[in-house]
C-alpha cells in the first residue's frame, strides 16, 4: 500500500519537475507539472500560487498558456530539500 506524501514532499516533487522541465527559458506548463509531480489540478493550482508568491517559482507568460520555471531560490531550496531528505532517510524517517 502506498503512503501519502507530506506537503513538503509534494513541493519538492513540483520543484524537481519544474527544474527538469525548465530546459529552455519558456518554462513548464501546468499539464506537464501535473504529470511529472503526480498531483491533481485543483491541488497544484494553490501550491503553484504559493510557490510563486514565495519566489521559488517564476511565472512565465507564454503565447498559449501560463508556464512556470524554477527560480534561483527554488533551486537552492530544492538542493537543500534533497540533502536533508537523505539525512532523514538515514534515520528511517521521511522529511
Amino acid at each position: 500500500m502506498g503512503t501519502y506524501r507530506k506537503q513538503i514532499q509534494i513541493v519538492g516533487d513540483i520543484l524537481d519537475a519544474a527544474e527538469e522541465l525548465t530546459i529552455d527559458q519558456e518554462g513548464a506548463s501546468i499539464t506537464k507539472l501535473i504529470q511529472k509531480a503526480n498531483i491533481s489540478h485543483s491541488r497544484i493550482s494553490k501550491i503553484l500560487t504559493n510557490l510563486v508568491s514565495q519566489g521559488l517559482l517564476e511565472q512565465v507568460d507564454s503565447k498559449r498558456a501560463c508556464k512556470y520555471k524554477i527560480s534561483m531560490s527554488g533551486k537552492e531550496f530544492l538542493k537543500e530539500f534533497k540533502r536533508f531528505s537523505e539525512f532523514t532517510d538515514n534515520f528511517g524517517l521521511t522529511i
Binding site: E80, F87, T88, F91, L93, I95
Partner: peptide, 18 residues
C-alpha cells in the same frame, strides 16, 4: 546543528525533532 540548518531551510517538523 546539521538538523537545525535543515529545519531552518526547509521548515520540516521531522528535522526540528531531530
Amino acid at each position: 546543528a546539521f538538523a537545525y540548518v535543515g529545519y531552518k531551510n526547509t521548515g520540516s517538523p521531522v528535522l526540528f525533532r531531530l
